[in-house]
């Protein structure tokens, strides 16, 4: 009886709003992490959910599901704003020097990301040069030529490649590849740009292959069949009809792959030489170097004061570059889908 009266007074929408608010507090609690005060806040939230569940199970459940599903977005916003707040000071003093300067000297407190940005570019280009042809070729073969049984083997194999933890790649690279390259090319250093590029290429391969294959799959078969009906060979039909139609999807795959290679940390950190200087000459991929990710990973533990700010700046830069890459790739993908839906 009383329950019913209460239910009338408190509209589900109001309840929804309050539960959402409470869920945000929970997130906030985890974010500021287990300070004593937050324990009580957390308990309050739990109590609120318990009471809500007992009296208004339906709306509480709905609100909790809503909160859970929005948490990813919320966390993204929190991460972005945290990086922005902490990383911005590094750019404020002299943004141009910070980005293209050539010196990273922790003891002299001079920080610029030039060599690391350059390192990231070299390593990413190297990885893409390996992964792009391999990935796109395997996508074409799996999507168009492979018989069903072979496809059943190849596709999971590529996906499994993505499932190998990056530390395993890094370990193999550090123990085997680094030394092999040193011997083969008769170079005097381990940890050049070259070896991580190869490993990163293999790590970006599954991303490129599977997204490119989706793009090729998405091309309506009547286009290709139309071409075949005019008497071209299968390869001609793929070359002249399917690939051009899927080109934006393949571009999206490449961009995603580049983002993957650029953001990968563990394997690079284990293999690269952590020398924070430009190679000379600039294109010398057999010199030891550093990338943005490996810089952050190797130095954050030892950093204090100003160098933390500089590393946060590096993180901010990296975050936005990788974010921009993946947003671009999404946009291209959705344009592709729209086109074929209309067509």
């Amino acid at each position: 009886m009383i329950n019913d009266q209460l239910k009338e007074k408190i509209s589900p929408r109001f309840l929804l709003a309050s539960v959402v608010f409470i869920s945000f507090s929970v997130l906030f609690t985890f974010f500021v992490l287990f300070q004593t005060f937050n324990v009580y806040l957390f308990l309050l939230v739990v109590a609120g959910v318990v009471i809500g569940w007992i009296f208004y199970e339906d709306s509480t459940a709905k609100a909790l599901l809503f909160a859970a599903s929005t948490s990813a977005g919320t966390i993204l916003i929190l991460i972005a704003s945290f990086l922005f707040i902490r990383g911005l000071p590094a750019f404020q003093e002299d943004p141009i020097f910070f980005i293209i300067g050539s010196e990273w000297d922790v003891y002299g407190e001079v920080y610029s990301l030039g060599p690391m940005i350059w390192g990231s570019i070299i390593v990413t280009l190297g990885a893409t040069a390996l992964a792009a042809p391999l990935g796109v070729s395997s996508a074409i073969f799996i999507g168009k030529f492979a018989p069903k049984w072979l496809r059943g083997i190849l596709k999971p194999a590529i996906e499994l490649l993505a499932g190998i933890p990056s530390v395993v790649y890094g370990f193999l690279g550090f123990v085997l590849l680094n030394r092999a390259i040193m011997d083969y090319f008769d170079i005097s250093n381990l940890g050049q740009y070259f070896a991580p590029s190869i490993i990163l290429g293999f790590m970006a391969l599954p991303t490129i292959a599977s997204v490119a294959e989706d793009a090729i799959d998405a091309v309506p078969t009547h286009l290709e069949k139309g071409a075949l009906a005019l008497g071209v060979t299968k390869w001609q039909a793929i070359k002249e009809v399917t690939l051009p139609s899927a080109s934006s999807g393949i571009t999206a795959a490449l961009i995603l792959g580049i983002g993957r290679a650029m953001g990968e940390t563990m394997a690079v950190t284990m293999m690269i030489g952590h020398k924070t200087a430009f190679p000379s000459p600039l294109y010398d991929i057999f010199e030891p170097g550093e990338t943005l990710t490996s810089l952050i990973a190797s130095q954050i533990g030892e950093a204090s004061g100003q160098s933390i700010d500089a590393l946060m700046g590096a993180g901010l830069l990296l975050f936005f570059v990788v974010l921009a890459l993946s947003v671009t790739s999404r946009l291209i993908q959705s344009r592709l889908q729209r086109r074929f839906r209309q067509g």
């Binding site: 003891y107 002299g108 940890g191 020398k275 030891p288 130095q299 160098s307």
Partner: peptide, 30 residues
């Protein structure tokens, strides 16, 4: 790794100060 205790003490022991900017011979940092 620059900034680590080991590196700092290495510089102090060898050069008398941690602020040495021209250690260009170092190829790899672990």
């Amino acid at each position: 790794t620059v900034g680590s205790g080991t590196e700092t003490m290495f510089r102090v022991n060898l050069f008398g100060s941690a602020e040495v900017s021209d250690l260009n011979g170092v190829d790899v940092r672990q």
